[in-house]
Amino acid sequence: MDAASLTVGYVPGGTPAKWARNWSRRHPQIPLELRTVAAADAADAVRSGAVDVAVLRLPSDTTGLAVIPLYEETTVVVVPADHLVTASDEITASDLDGEPRLLPHDDVVDWADAPGALVEHRPESTGEAIELVAAGIGVLIVPQSLARLHHRKDVAYRPIADAPPCPVALAVPEGPQPALVEDFIGIVRGRRPGSSRGQTPPTPKRTAREKTLAKQAARAAAGKVARKPGRTQRGR
């Protein structure tokens, strides 16, 4: 990693822009580069040092990496705009029984028993698969962010209520992290500027009753001192 910059990889559909904006406000003199990486290559990009950190999808081979879960995406089905399932705001897996289903080579949904009958032809990419959806060849199951990324007027998508979610995580190399990586992790986790995991937690504020008792104890102690007889000097 260049000591004066940070490179963040992210898979298609990832949304690191908010973190990048916060970084630019916190570190205006330190460039942050956002680099799109294929879902299948994201973990290797971190291991090889091609990127310093990566926003990736799980499950993935994260050997040698420390993984910080971020959020889970809704799983949706992409269909032609005039498909019957668009009559509902949300569907279930059974609504797709018997539907021809496209499975691109860059598929990222971990759903072994996903509904539908697989189409023999496997598109190379999600983008190509959505073109085939528009042509009426089949439906496609993807994370919601990918459906939004490849949105077009002749297709629509609907959440699948009983589908497994699609987890997204931040991956960094295992072991102690450089200061810039720690700062980025802090931004992702919502830490305030200057905060640190190692800082001593602030002293909790006292309740009104605790303050009253403390004042009473102080007054009582002062009264004892006032009543204590002083030493007198004996005459010779």
Rank of each mutant, 00 (worst) to 15 (best):
D162K: 14
D183I: 02
W19N: 06
P159T: 02
L65E: 01
R122T: 14
V76C: 07
A17P: 01
A39K: 04
E124W: 06
A50N: 15
H27T: 14
P115Q: 10
D107N: 09
A156R: 13
T126P: 03
V119N: 04
L32Y: 06
R148M: 09
D52I: 06
A221C: 11
T126D: 12
A163L: 08
L102A: 08
G230R: 09
S5D: 13
V37C: 05
A163W: 01
E124T: 10
W111H: 05
E128F: 00
L70A: 04
L180W: 03
T207E: 08
P28I: 08
G127K: 13
A81L: 04
I68Y: 10
L96C: 09
S5Y: 11
T212S: 15
A135R: 12
E73L: 10
R26S: 15
R227L: 10
D2Q: 13
E90R: 11
R189I: 09
L170F: 00
L132C: 05
D41R: 12
E124S: 12
E33H: 14
V155Q: 02
D154E: 11
A222D: 12
F184I: 08
D89R: 09
G198Q: 10
S125Q: 10
I160P: 01
L103D: 11
A66I: 05
E124L: 12
A43T: 13
D44F: 03
L103C: 10
S94P: 01
V172C: 02
P204T: 05
T15D: 07
L58P: 01
S195E: 11
L102Y: 03
D162V: 14
L58N: 01
I187E: 00
S195I: 00
I187H: 00
G190W: 03
I91D: 02
G64E: 07
L56A: 06
D183L: 06
S195Q: 08
A163H: 07
T126S: 10
V168K: 02
